[in-house]
Simulated assay, not measured.
Amino acid sequence: MNHPQEEQSRLSSSIATTCSKLQADYLGRNGYPNQAQARGTLAELRKSAGQPALQNPLVFENVLSSLVAPLSEKEMGRGDAPSPSEEAAFQALTYFALHMQGATHEVHDSSHSFASACGRLAHTSESKSIKGRFDALVLARTAQSRLIQTRSLISLLRSKDLRFHYGWFATDLRKLSNPRTRNGVLLRWGRDFAFAQHPRENNSSSTTKEN
């Protein structure tokens, strides 16, 4: 399912490119030295998955240093707190590092949104708690609660080898920090989650929707 046009932002492209490189290195496709470096980088980043950037200044620095393409000048922060784009980049890459732990294939791909992956998880899992976990994320009243619920869901996606587009995810995380755009993201996530639970009915129309 396609993401809105804002997926073309520098934040989205930077995170997508960075995740593609890190996972290729991690999986050993670019030689052992790159693999060892990627594994060290991701091991450091995943320690902060689900935590605010402001509490982890060294990891925040590592996130910005890891970006293959830097954020635009407009997206960079100026003061003593991360900008919304910097916070979103921090969250996306630390969650990606958690998702990649022990992976034998890509966890970042270009065809599924985060909510769509969660819907596929609910459809294929024997557990009946997935929808409740996703609903708890949508209903979370604080940023800290959303971080915790998101970490829990990504751990479950990792256990079932489900993947999604981390560039789109980063854009959504940035919009979730803005009260004016938050509900729109949550509404779209609900749609993607529900749509992904009916793959047989949707397979025939997916190509049309993505073109």
Rank of each mutant, 00 (worst) to 15 (best):
E6S: 13
D135G: 04
E44D: 09
K131S: 07
K47I: 15
L157N: 02
R174W: 02
P57V: 13
P70H: 02
S110E: 12
H108Y: 04
E7T: 06
K47F: 13
T18G: 01
L71F: 00
L121I: 13
T17L: 11
S155H: 12
S206T: 12
L42H: 06
A122R: 05
F195W: 14
R180S: 09
L42I: 11
R146P: 04
I15R: 00
L153C: 01
G50W: 11
R188Y: 10
A49E: 05
G40F: 04
S113H: 01
S111N: 10
E7L: 05
C19K: 04
Y26I: 10
H108W: 01
D80V: 03
G40N: 14
L93A: 01
E126A: 10
L45G: 04
V63G: 04
A117K: 01
K21T: 12
G119S: 07
V59M: 09
L22V: 05
H165S: 12
P70D: 02
S83N: 02
G31Y: 10
R10L: 05
L156S: 11
E106H: 11
I148Y: 03
Q35E: 15
G77K: 04
S65Q: 14
H99T: 11
T17K: 14
S159R: 14
P33M: 10
E75M: 00
E75F: 02
C118F: 03
S14C: 07
P33R: 14
P84M: 03
T181P: 04
E126M: 08
F193W: 05
S204M: 13
L162F: 07
F169A: 03
L162C: 13
D109R: 15
F90T: 02
L11I: 06
T150M: 12
K131P: 00
L187E: 13
P4L: 10
L67I: 01
K74I: 01
D109L: 13
V68I: 14
W168G: 15
G132V: 14
S48D: 15
G132A: 09
R46W: 11
S13C: 09
N178T: 09
W189R: 03
Y32C: 07
E86S: 00
Q37R: 15
R146Y: 07
N62H: 13
P52N: 09
D192W: 04
R120P: 00
A117Q: 02
M100S: 11
S205T: 15
S12K: 01
E201L: 10
S12F: 04
Q197M: 14
L186W: 03
S205P: 02
R120E: 06
Q101K: 09
